[in-house]
Nucleic acid binder design. Structure first.
Lengths: 146, 146
DNA sequence: GGTGATTAGTTTAATATCAAACGATACGAT
DNA sequence: ATCGTATCGTTTGATATTAAACTAATCACC
């Protein structure tokens, strides 16, 4: 295959990958905003929901954002009464973030809706196609991480 | 296949798709920021580079952002001397945005670098795998657009 | 021709986002 | 013990982003 053909194929593949990711994101983010959550807020709540209380540094690492950013997102979640901060008594540098009852109820509901949206979206592909897509995406993702 | 299995497959496929898209984006965005461009600024310059002068509404549609956002991005590009605005003489509501010489030179260089990064990234997959990935992504993207 | 609806772009207010500087706390080595 | 280093979180300044209110210009229709 010529260099030009290789390049063209890579670029169209890249574009299709990006479009697919964007349209999937657009579906799920509609669910989140309908519930009054931003994507970041959802990310934080979802991390706490599945991993339990976390310090802000761990939350930042989990959702791939800066710690400065997390400070603001947690501020807003705290104002809405969805999470609360608790100073670690052993190492006072840490702030452990906990879901409140309201926060737990909300993320449980919204997470289920997001899951349903994803399942509905992916239903376009057969099980075999999904497995193939997943395998190729994983191969691609691993390379880039290196 | 059971509902639970269907759901699990859809969710892991979705996660892998997102991770692949993120890692590909991370590579290309490094090239852009190294050149002093934000992702949006690159998007605007690239649109003008390949489509010629455009009005702000068309730029917004092309890079899927709000017109309010485009106003700011063009403001910053204009300050940097990479684009200039020109009021349309026929319909004075329109502002046509043009690349300057500096802007053209910059986007030509950066776009080539981004392309190279994409080609290098996709080289992880064989041509056949890329075609398969592209086909599946397209199928998925089309559904969501509907 | 004049009025009402539409369209292009700007502004505003809120949240997001990062990098970098900073303050407070903890830890390690001597 | 303490001095230097590392770590956690906040702050700051810049850009991004949207939705919604707004201005200016045009068009459609009577």
């Amino acid at each position: 295959m010529s260099d030009t053909t290789t390049k063209k194929l890579a670029l169209t593949t890249y574009t299709k990958l990006m479009r697919a990711a964007e349209s999937a994101t657009s579906r799920t983010s509609k669910v989140m905003t309908a519930a009054g959550l931003t994507i970041s807020q959802f990310g934080v709540l979802e991390a706490l929901y599945h991993k339990g209380p976390l310090c802000q540094r761990d939350i930042a690492a989990k959702i791939l954002k800066s710690t400065g950013n997390i400070t603001l997102v947690i501020d807003n979640l705290e104002k809405s009464g969805l999470v609360r901060r608790e100073r670690d008594s052993e190492d006072r540098r840490f702030l452990t973030v906990h879901l409140t009852e309201t926060g737990t109820a909300l993320i449980a509901k919204v997470f289920a809706e997001v899951e349903a949206a994803i399942v509905a979206d992916l239903a376009t592909l057969t099980a075999e196609e999904q497995e193939t897509l997943g395998r190729l995406c994983k191969k691609l993702g691993l390379k880039s991480a290196a």
